[in-house]
């Protein structure tokens, strides 16, 4: 009796249908309803995710008459990079018509130093927080992490005043400082967790050998931190490249980054909009983070997930 209730009625074995005893692996039909549902759902979501990329690229390769024909999904009749060239060299960003190229170089000038400075500062922070705890260091870290959730708008105006006092408002230095400040919480968390995962004996052994703060940092910690540096690099390059707000507020009109210029091309355009040029400019702006994303693969995922793992 207990048997019957515990085990339920034995399901009719599929093997007995053909008259053979079940033997070997369970027969698995290639198409089960479950599999069909899974793959169809994933397929439709993939369409949703891929559609904009497709539209963006296809439109950028069309001519304006072709676009006015009104078929956004059609492949270009004669793919041409004219719009790309125009977007790069002569599209109008507000008052000037020099294309996106200056914006691209501005973004490069902002991204490279901001990335280096912010990562270096954060690496030192993480190292000090793990290996050289001092009174209050954990409190500062906690405020830092909470600070990362404060909307930027809250600190924006005082920051403008501070940078103006320091004479770096509206300059490359200004925007680099701002990126270093706002990159600090997540990067410090990243490095702190990484250094904490390294064997502490290594650090202790180095101290017993008489090495000091900077010596241990440069000669022991840094050589072991390559993986986390790559993750931080990916995080910062894409993050800073994609920034809009800090660029528009702090960089100054001479140094407006690519995202700001792109938005100006599309949304402040005078006259008839040239959608092919707009999309070419959009693709060009998205290209740098996309290349980093596709090249880095798993490391990008790690960087993204690292933000979610609390220390």
């Amino acid at each position: 009796m207990s048997q019957a209730t515990a085990i339920n009625a034995p399901a009719p074995s599929r093997g007995t249908v053909s008259g053979t005893e079940p033997r070997g692996p369970r027969p698995k039909p290639f198409f089960t309803p479950k599999k069909i549902i899974i793959y169809t759902t994933l397929f439709f979501f993939s369409l949703y995710f891929l559609f904009p990329l497709y539209v963006m690229v296809v439109t950028s390769l069309k001519t304006m008459p072709e676009i006015r024909f009104g078929n956004i999904v059609a492949l270009p009749a004669a793919p041409s990079f004219d719009a790309w060239v125009r977007a790069w060299t002569s599209a109008c960003t507000g008052l000037t018509c020099n294309g996106l190229a200056p914006g691209f170089w501005n973004s490069v000038k902002i991204t490279i130093p901001s990335t280096i400075v912010s990562i270096f500062v954060a690496a030192v922070n993480g190292y000090a927080l793990v290996n050289w705890r001092f009174k209050g260091s954990e409190v500062f870290f906690a405020i830092l992490i909470f600070g990362s959730f404060i909307p930027y708008q809250v600190m924006l105006y005082p920051l403008v005043m501070i940078t103006r006092e320091l004479g770096i408002f509206g300059s490359l230095q200004g925007v680099i400082v701002i990126h270093t400040i706002f990159g600090m919480p997540i990067l410090t968390l990243l490095f702190r967790n990484y250094f904490a995962s390294l064997p502490q004996e290594l650090f202790k052994a180095a101290r017993v050998d008489g090495a000091g703060f900077w010596r241990i940092f440069f000669e022991i910690m840094l050589p072991m931190s390559l993986p986390i540096f790559v993750v931080a690099l990916i995080l910062q390059i894409t993050g800073i490249w994609n920034d809009f707000l800090f660029g528009v507020v702090f960089a100054g009109t001479q140094n407006l980054p690519m995202t700001v210029q792109l938005n100006n091309i599309v949304n402040s355009a005078q006259g008839t909009p040239e959608y092919n040029v707009n999309m070419a400019a959009t693709v060009l702006t998205g290209l740098v983070p996309l290349i980093i994303y596709f090249v880095s693969g798993k490391l990008f995922v790690r960087g993204v997930a690292a933000g979610a793992v609390k220390g």
Binding site: I7, N8, P10, S13, R14, G15, E21, P22, R26, P27
Partner: peptide, 10 residues
Amino acid sequence: KNVTWEEPKD
């Protein structure tokens, strides 16, 4: 009982 193809619960 031949359980080669049965689910664990069965």
